Simulated assay, not measured.
Amino acid sequence: MTILRELLKVEYPVIQAPMAGVQDSALTIAVSKAGGLGSLPCAMLTGDKILEEVARIRSATDRPFNLNFFCHTLPPEDPEKEAAWRQSLQPYYEELGLDLNDDAGGASRRPFDEQTADLVAELKPAVVSFHFGLPAPDLLAYIKSSGVKVLASATTVAEALWLEERGADAIIAQGLEAGGHRGHFLSGDLGLHMGTFALLPQIVSRVKIPVIAAGGIASAAGVEAARKLGAVAAQVGTAYLLCTETKTSAIHRAALQSEQASHTEITNVFSGRPARGIANRLIREQGPLSTRVPDFPNAAGALAPLRSEAEKCGKGDFSPLWAGQNTTGCEEIAAGEMTLKLAGAQQTS
């Protein structure tokens, strides 16, 4: 626990995974107040929105929190691939009575840039975490000079070594069981990815910096198992999805509490990049991994009208129902209580 407290200044070895689309600062606050490390996903937020959310966090607690960003490279426009993707979705548009040329916009995902680095340097959060690698060396040095600790996801030993060499303060070992987007960045070969408890000890044995386990951990026993294999903490996402402070939709909540949750797939059909979610109609009929999908993050625009219309009818056929392989820890309880359960701590009144 000494390493954990020096690194993250938290009481318990539990980090709430940043989950864009299903949370805002309310979840971050609840987890941090309980003694874990609350996280705020920022890749889909404007600078003004980040400022607003951080102000809310700091008005509610003085405990550490994490701001999470993506480090992807925006792809060039590819009208031919976009047209082919829309063509493959045409039957769904016709079924729902929609115009194929409609575009509800989809959620944008911004890579970390100079403007965002300035914002981080101004806000000085205790922790910043990155998915899909690290920012450019000058931007990383800039934010580290402001005193923040940097975490980054690795899906292979090679990625962990790369992150350590380039200045990460700790590595998140993301196992194949984890829900949401895969954090890989050196290779797109999913065959290289391992389960959490295979990946974790291999990374621990090869790097000198602290390692955090992620993927399939949904209980105090899981957190303890990760620590016995050398992790200083566990990053948990799926178990928080039903908590009262999340914004998980009714459709997503229902899926998590049904037999449907026992079947998750790694798919690229929602965003253009592999991510794990509960199998639904779009995954079954188009994927799970499709070569027709535009590169990340450009797949979402054409899906947005379909998702919106289906959800109006109470269906999640075109919705990304992100979840890891282990949904057994999901409970409709307060996030603070969930954090204490994961830490194996007793709740005090």
Rank of each mutant, 00 (worst) to 15 (best):
R63S: 09
T2G: 10
V128W: 06
A221I: 13
N268G: 08
L282M: 13
R276A: 00
E122Y: 12
S349H: 14
T246I: 04
A310G: 03
F70A: 15
V14D: 03
M194I: 04
T156V: 11
R110P: 00
S258E: 04
E53W: 02
D113P: 09
A17V: 09
F296T: 06
G230V: 10
A126R: 15
T73R: 12
G237K: 09
E177Y: 09
L8P: 01
C243K: 01
L134E: 04
T339W: 08
S32E: 05
V22M: 13
R56E: 12
K124G: 06
G301L: 04
F70S: 14
P64H: 00
T264A: 00
N66K: 01
E94I: 13
V128E: 05
G21D: 11
S187G: 06
L67A: 03
E245C: 06
A345C: 10
P18M: 08
E11P: 00
R284G: 03
T2N: 14
V128Y: 01
Q347F: 15
R86E: 11
C42Y: 03
A168P: 05
D113Y: 02
H181G: 11
S88Y: 10
L40R: 04
L242V: 07
P41Q: 07
V211M: 03
A250C: 04
R63Q: 11
L282G: 03
S219C: 08
A334I: 07
G344C: 04
G21K: 03
Q115M: 11
Q90D: 14
N101R: 15
R86N: 11
D62V: 01
V207M: 06
F112P: 06
F270Q: 00
K341N: 14
